[in-house]
Design a protein around this nucleic acid. Structure first.
Length: 979
RNA sequence: GGCCCUGUAGCCCAAUUGGCAGAGGCACGCGACUUAAAAUCGCGCCAGUGUGGGUUCGAGUCCCACCAGGGCCA
């Protein structure tokens, strides 16, 4: 059952539509309503799965997908359907070129926007969501979009989120095997542990002889390794939990008291505010569900090579994953503390070549080692500083200000390259969440280290020679800036007098011990020489680090998927058995989050107020409590593209055969949506898909083979003298000045939407011009991938085109069809075939603006004719049908066809019709146009040249000069170079 | 500060990927029809491609620098 019918929509019988047929003019209202109804009644756009009756296995498949919308309360504005119209044209085009097309739509109905709308209006989110979905479905249907509505899904439907929960359980029941680089069932890890394949290292890492040298974490037997069988049952359980792809962890999270929930890093803005609502966000440690997306860093980055996506989006994902190559270096403590005499501090650096320049170390104030290394004299000062740092936000701490704060721990480490005793400090510009939470400070070559060192009077030792330009630019006053040697000498002797740190590359200096010398080596060579030395001496090794963190997967909200997890009184957790899914969201009247202005307010989830009958579950005599957090916004959208393939399946999240057929080798054939999802949805989806792929549930390594980002529709917006936006519709223009209610306003420009008060609704446009006009107008605005300005004034252009088309086909007086079986005149026939080719090429390139222009041109050719030849009409309507389907269906029917035009074949052009008998060549002399000659198409180069030389004007410009070169570009031009 | 995208008639956009800068639309002007207006039809109007260099027989297209607008990351 379609969402629209579910919402109580009853189609009006065709005969009752208001009609202006009597006058035989272009009655778009009646035509559009009538054909939309016919499509619905005949299920014209139902996509058949393999095994369905009538399924044609011979046809290639084409899966064209839209990013599904949130069912927002304000409905659609004309910016939303831009992508939907484009995919609809592609879907209709592909059907006509012999493809089995899957073109579905659904609603991403869980999450903050829906919940906030419900809270604001004091209505249960289920009710507002249903209402909003009904309204948006009505709006979408009115655009004549050829979705298979039978596959429409809502992420809030228990029949859907049952499988979202199921996928979560698959992640929970899996671990990432670093050797195979794949997710594998955790039961296999358990078997391996029980068989003694691995021992357990002191930090819970897996240790195996067989894997020695293959993997770091699985490397050779370490002292203190234990056997699996030596662990107590609860230790065994905890160890397994540490390897799961979904795990609980006490981590510093982004806590937003005003929203009453935690947020993922991706949902926090640069200013440290919530992406939604712009509320302050604080870091605090909390026990939360995490998904181990970091295990997939390498594959997520590498596999971007497999997909046809816009380069900027790939780049954004790569930057977000943030791969950096460098080295891990172990600094021994100079005086071991009493508790742990062998302690080392491990740092990650991207510049191991600057190790000789490390003159001190900095730990994050939260670093676990701080406690044990701090000397008694410094203890109080360190404690005070830690308290100070805890009160600051991450964003604050990372801000690039010259004023740095910190405190000395009293402890020292040894720089492994030269055994120099270097002080260990704590400072809040070092973050626990990045790298190892400790850095080696190289003040000569890192700006923040330099600021800190200058402030605390720490030594600065240059180890890389800067470029001359840099030296000149940053040298202190009093240096001779033209004297290269003087500058260098100055720099090496007194680097702190220069006003910046040199972060670039260059030859090494001051970098030599008895075993390795970096002096004179360019940076890349210096890096590898140092890495080699570190590895040889056991002080470290080259390694790769990623910026991406694990995905915080809990939210303290009501309107989300409940976790299928039970907590025992003793703290251990068990999954809900798969056959008991879904864990339905309980009916609750009080679903509001516990919002607060107090950053220290404890999180309290709405589900903690659920009835006990829901919260408590008894299994084998033990009373378990359900997990009371819910999943985040993104959970449902991670896999919806798979559910469409087999939306009604109760047995599996998607049937194998349907999945194999529609996903094929490369996933979706076209995925269209906004670029704002470059690092959120698109990264999360890829992660889930890869895990499902590893576990054998889906066949392709990537979900979205081809991605296309549509641009935004922008519109003029107007502000009054206070700078407040006013309703753009009510602004009046006269002589280039704009007024609102008599007051002058200034014009700006921005993305269409509620906040700028410049939204235009599709319903109004459909009312006034019809949806075929709206569809054409949106496509005709410009290239799909670019942002364009909405200008209501321009709509009449494409509307006139459709009016003219109608009058070319139908006599408005009599209603008589003007299509006859007359022979097509030769020039018109050529024009037709040229148009077929141009439109086909443009459709393939998704250059719909160009395709429409070509059709307008052909239509304009027909305007002067009393009747049009059937040959032209029969080819022209199918060309236009994907873009303006309703008017084409109507004219197609009036021409005597029974079936829908959407099932006819796409026209093909006759190449012979494109070849002209003669070609006019522009003739250039020294690159300047001097004449034109017309020669037979089959003339050879010599004949063309001869003809060119005969042109009077050309001859004149060649007179008295010798010909150096003649360039004849077949079918293009002739250029004669003289001198 | 780094990276990415975009600059073509008054406006939105084409330009076969290095080959005559103009397909289409809007706006504007004139004419036809009309008592008149709208609609419709016909005709017309306008830039040398943001700026400055370079490569080339030839540059809107490729390279370098700069300017402006938009985006992403610091």
């Amino acid at each position: 059952m379609s969402a629209l019918r579910a919402a109580g929509f009853v189609p009006v019988p065709v005969s009752e539509y208001p009609s202006r047929i009597m006058s035989h003019t272009y009655d778009y209202t009646g035509i559009e309503a009538r054909w939309q109804d016919v499509w619905e009644q005949r299920s014209t756009f139902r996509a058949l799965n393999p095994g369905d009756e009538g399924f044609d296995a011979e046809k290639p498949k084409f899966y064209v997908l839209d990013m599904f919308p949130y069912p927002s309360g304000v409905g659609l504005h004309v910016g939303h359907p831009l992508g939907y119209i484009a995919t609809d044209i592609v879907a209709r085009y592909k059907r006509m070129t012999g493809h089995n097309v899957l073109h579905p739509m659904g609603y991403d109905s869980f999450g903050l926007p829906a919940e906030q709308f419900a809270v604001e209006h004091g209505v249960h989110p289920k009710i507002t969501t249903d209402k909003n979905i009904a309204n948006m479905t009505r709006q979408l249907k009115r655009l004549g979009l050829s979705y298979d509505w039978d596959r429409c899904l809502e992420t809030t439907d228990p029949g859907y989120y049952k499988w979202t929960q199921w996928i979560f359980l698959q992640l929970y029941k899996s671990w990432f095997n670093p050797v195979s680089r794949k997710a594998e069932p955790i039961s296999e890890l358990l078997q391996a542990l029980e068989a003694g394949d691995y021992d357990i290292g002191p930090d819970g890492e897996l240790v195996s002889d067989a894997l020695d040298g293959v993997m770091d974490t699985l490397g050779g037997v370490e002292p203190g390794a234990r056997k699996w069988t030596e662990l107590a049952p609860d230790q065994q359980a905890r160890l397994l939990d540490e390897y799961r792809l979904a795990y609980l962890a006490e981590v510093p999270v982004n806590w937003c008291p005003a929203l009453g929930t935690v947020l993922a890093n991706e949902e926090v803005t640069n200013e440290g505010k919530s992406d939604r609502g712009n509320h302050p966000v604080y870091k605090r440690p909390m026990k939360q569900w995490m998904l181990r997306i970091t295990a997939y860093c390498e594959r997520l980055a590498d596999d971007l090579r497999l997909v046809d996506w816009p380069e900027p989006i790939k780049l954004m994902q790569r930057n977000w994953i943030g791969r950096s190559e460098g080295a891990e270096v172990h600094f021994p403590l100079a005086f071991g503390s009493a508790e742990s005499p062998d302690e080392v501090i491990t740092v990650f650096t991207t510049r191991p070549d600057t190790l000789f320049g490390a003159t001190y170390m900095v730990l994050a104030p939260e670093h676990p080692l701080v406690e044990s290394i701090t000397t008694d004299e410094q203890r109080q000062a360190v404690k005070d500083y830690q308290a100070l740092a805890a009160a600051r936000s991450d964003i604050d701490r990372q801000a690039e200000v010259k004023e740095k704060t910190g405190e000395f721990t009293g402890a020292y480490a040894l720089n492994p390259v030269d055994n120099d005793k270097i002080p260990i400090l704590i400072a809040d510009y070092v973050m626990m969440g990045y790298g190892t939470g400790a850095i080696m400070a190289v003040p000569a070559h890192d700006q923040r280290d330099s600021d800190f060192a200058k402030q605390f009077g720490l030594p600065i030792k240059p180890v890389v020679l800067p470029t001359q330009d840099w030296l000149k630019h940053h040298a202190p006053d009093g240096c001779d800036k033209e004297d290269t040697h003087d500058l260098m000498a100055h720099y090496v002797a007194a680097p702190k007098t220069f006003d910046a740190a040199y972060g670039g590359t260059g030859a090494g200096i001051n970098s030599e011990n008895g075993e390795v010398s970096l002096n004179g080596l360019p940076t890349p060579d210096a890096k590898s020489a140092m890495n080699e030395w570190l590895a040889r001496r056991g002080f470290g090794k080259s390694t790769v680090q990623y910026k991406l963190r694990d995905w915080l997967f809990s939210r303290q909200r009501y309107w989300g998927e409940p976790f299928p997890i039970l907590h025992a009184p003793d703290g251990h957790i068990i999954p809900v058995p798969e056959e008991d899914l879904p864990v339905a969201l309980p009916e609750m009247d009080d679903f509001k989050p516990s919002a607060s202005d107090d950053p220290n307010a404890p999180p309290q989830t709405p589900l903690s107020r659920a009835p006990d009958s829901w919260k408590t579950v008894e299994v084998n005599g033990v009373k378990y409590t359900r997990e009371l957090n819910t999943m985040p916004q993104w959970a449902g959208s991670c896999w919806y593209y798979l559910r469409y393939l087999d939306a009604g399946n109760d047995e599996r999240f998607v049937g194998k055969e349907a999945e194999q057929y529609w996903m094929g080798d490369n996933g979706t054939d076209l995925y269209v949506g906004g670029a704002e999802h470059a690092v959120l949805h698109l990264l999360y989806s890829r992660f889930w898909h890869k895990a499902l792929h590893d576990l054998g549930h889906v066949g392709t390594p990537e979900p979205f083979g081809r991605l296309f980002n549509q641009g935004y529709i922008q519109a003029y917006a107007y502000t009054d003298q206070r700078g407040v936006y006013v309703d753009a519709e009510k602004v009046q223009e006269s002589d280039g000045a704009f007024t609102f209610g008599g007051e002058p306003v200034s014009r700006e420009f921005g993305k269409m939407g509620k906040s700028l008060k410049n939204a235009v609704g599709p319903d109004d446009v459909c009312e006034r011009y019809g949806c075929d006009t709206l569809r054409l107008y949106e496509m005709y605005l410009g290239p799909l991938d670019q942002s364009k300005v909405w200008n209501t004034r321009d709509i009449v252009g494409v509307h006139r085109f459709l009016q003219r088309l109608w009058r070319n086909f139908v006599d408005e007086e009599s209603g008589e069809l003007l299509v006859t079986s007359d022979r097509t005149e030769e020039p018109l026939k050529r024009k037709l075939h040229k148009t077929i080719k141009r439109v086909t090429d443009a459709m393939d390139a998704m250059a719909f603006n160009v395709a429409i222009a070509a059709m307008i041109e052909l239509n304009n050719e027909l305007v002067g004719l009393k009747t049009i030849p059937r040959e032209v009409a029969e080819n022209m309507l199918p060309l236009l049908a994907p873009s303006a389907p309703h008017i084409c269906e109507e004219l197609w029917k009036r021409m005597g066809h029974d079936g829908s035009i959407s099932t006819t074949n796409w026209p093909t052009h006759d190449p012979a019709m494109l070849i002209e008998d003669t070609i006019e060549y522009p003739v250039q002399v020294n690159g300047k146009l001097r004449g034109k000659v017309t020669v037979p198409t089959d003339a050879d180069d010599a004949a063309i040249e001869a003809a060119a030389r005969e042109d009077e004007n050309v001859a004149e410009h060649m007179a008295g000069k010798s010909v150096r070169k003649v360039i004849v570009v077949p079918k293009r031009l002739i250029n004669i170079v003289v001198g």
